[in-house]
Nucleic acid binder design. Sequence first.
DNA 1: CTCTATGCAAAAACTTTGCAGGGAT
DNA 2: ATCCCTGCAAAGTTTTTGCATAGAG
Lengths: 127, 127
Amino acid sequence: MDKITNLTNITNIKLTSARKSILELLINSNKPLSYEDMKDNISMDKATFYRNITIFEEENLISSFESNDKKRYFEIKKTQHSHFICSSCSKIECIHEKVDFHLPNYKIENIIIKGICKDCLLTEKND
Amino acid sequence: MDKITNLTNITNIKLTSARKSILELLINSNKPLSYEDMKDNISMDKATFYRNITIFEEENLISSFESNDKKRYFEIKKTQHSHFICSSCSKIECIHEKVDFHLPNYKIENIIIKGICKDCLLTEKND
DNA sequence: CTCTATGCAAAAACTTTGCAGGGAT
DNA sequence: ATCCCTGCAAAGTTTTTGCATAGAG
């Protein structure tokens, strides 16, 4: 039984080939992906894509967040980590350092850190 | 000399009445505001609004982030704090608790925490 | 046969751009 | 007179919806 079947057989969704191709891409990616990132590798209409994304989120298979570039980025729910979005180049990086933070009575799902990445900081200095 | 003059006279932007009205709203708000939040209280076209917002960001007077609801939220740069966005009700809250977190070589500007707020958690339990 | 999934086209929502007119100095 | 600011309208971008067809069980 492969990873994707594992993921979906605990839910009540049908594993169509469209859905499989989205999940495959997300599982094999080491960073969040937008529709634009994925569209050349999944052969389906954007309507189908977004409808399936909605279902995946309802089933808690994936999480998403909005970035600087106005796009939504999607990611398989796996070991929890944070994301860094560079205000300058819009690059997104996964941050695995532990963030020490507690908010009683809230459920924390995702931490997004905005700022300037080290590459852009270096470039600024060289200007 | 008022707050707004203080804010802007260190920059090289002209303080028009349009700009003043945006800054006034942001200064007096205790939470980030979107264009929609502000539009009834500022009498200017949305083009003017967004053009001025761009200038304010370039001048480092304000910061912004994208929320669940596809809107950008703007805030005067003041004492640093984080924001909590509820995935369920999309409410935004300012979080003044310290987030203990270090990323060497990166400049951190803004921390956004996504999750379920305490009100929505309660509602879920009561279903 | 029935129920869900999909594609296509159009709509929706927010933001940006082009262009011409207005205001300030 | 010049330069920047503004309003209006149109365009741009991402995501969503309606509807009819296709496909699975």
